[in-house]
Amino acid sequence: MEREILEIIRKRKSVRKFSDRTISDVQIKTLLEAGQQAPSVRNGQPWQYIVIKNQENKRALSALKGSWHPLSQSAVGLCMFVDLQEYPSTHKEFFAQDCAAATENILLTAAAMGIGSLWMGVYPNVTLEMAVKNILKVPAEKTVFNLIALGYETENERKAHRKEPIIYWECYGRSQ
């Protein structure tokens, strides 16, 4: 089991070229369920989603930032956002950790299902956030965290090189 999990983690990569193969609603719900299993402050599970299948919306979003062009080719986009007024902690800034954990669960589950993904950060860029809110009609009081492009890759893109971890034992500067 450990090896299977590590293999999925190693397999996950950012995909930027998607085929026109569709992703079913059942698959989308499976991915969102994986996100729901993420840890969060006081088990608040603050994330909410907009599922984006409409090509016009995907094109409009992808036009907001050059590196977001893969969204227009993806089968599905997800917009993750939170309502900080309902956040269960006085430390509202922790929502980003909650959403990052949920996002990683989605990305790893997609990799396990053979679905490619691309995480596109929105928060804390207020200008981008306002543009995304405008396109997707997200209420002003919500905070958009990210967009995720999902689909099947057209070609086997090379995975980015991973560095060796920098590790200290017991305190900063102490090697094993």
Rank of each mutant, 00 (worst) to 15 (best):
R3T: 13
R3C: 05
I5D: 01
E7L: 03
I8K: 09
I8R: 03
I8S: 07
I9N: 03
K11Q: 12
R12W: 02
S14G: 08
S19N: 04
S19C: 05
S19I: 03
D20R: 11
K29I: 10
L31R: 04
L31S: 05
L32A: 06
A34W: 00
A34Y: 01
G35P: 05
Q37A: 12
A38E: 03
P39R: 08
R42C: 12
N43S: 14
N43C: 11
Q45K: 13
W47R: 05
W47A: 05
Y49F: 15
I50V: 13
I50S: 06
I50N: 07
V51L: 02
I52D: 03
I52M: 06
I52W: 06
K53A: 10
N54V: 09
N54M: 06
N54Y: 05
N54K: 13
E56P: 07
L64V: 09
L64T: 07
G66H: 11
G66W: 12
S67E: 14
S67D: 15
S67T: 15
L71T: 07
Q73F: 11
S74L: 03
L78I: 06
C79A: 14
M80N: 13
V82E: 01
V82R: 05
V82P: 00
D83E: 10
D83K: 05
D83L: 07
L84C: 10
Q85W: 10
P88H: 03
S89L: 08
S89C: 09
E93F: 12
E93Y: 12
E93V: 11
F94H: 11
F95L: 01
A96Y: 09
A96P: 00
A100T: 11
A100S: 14
A100R: 04
A100I: 04
A101E: 08
T103I: 05
E104H: 07
E104P: 01
N105K: 03
N105G: 01
I106Y: 08
T109Y: 06
A111D: 04
A111Y: 02
M113P: 00
I115F: 00
G116F: 00
S117Y: 01
L118T: 02
V122Y: 01
E129N: 02
A131D: 11
V132Q: 07
K133D: 05
I135W: 07
L136S: 09
K137G: 06
V138I: 15
A140K: 15
A149H: 06
G151F: 00
T154Q: 15
E155G: 04
E157K: 08
R158S: 13
R158L: 13
A160V: 11
W169F: 15
W169Y: 15
E170Y: 13
C171M: 15
Y172V: 12
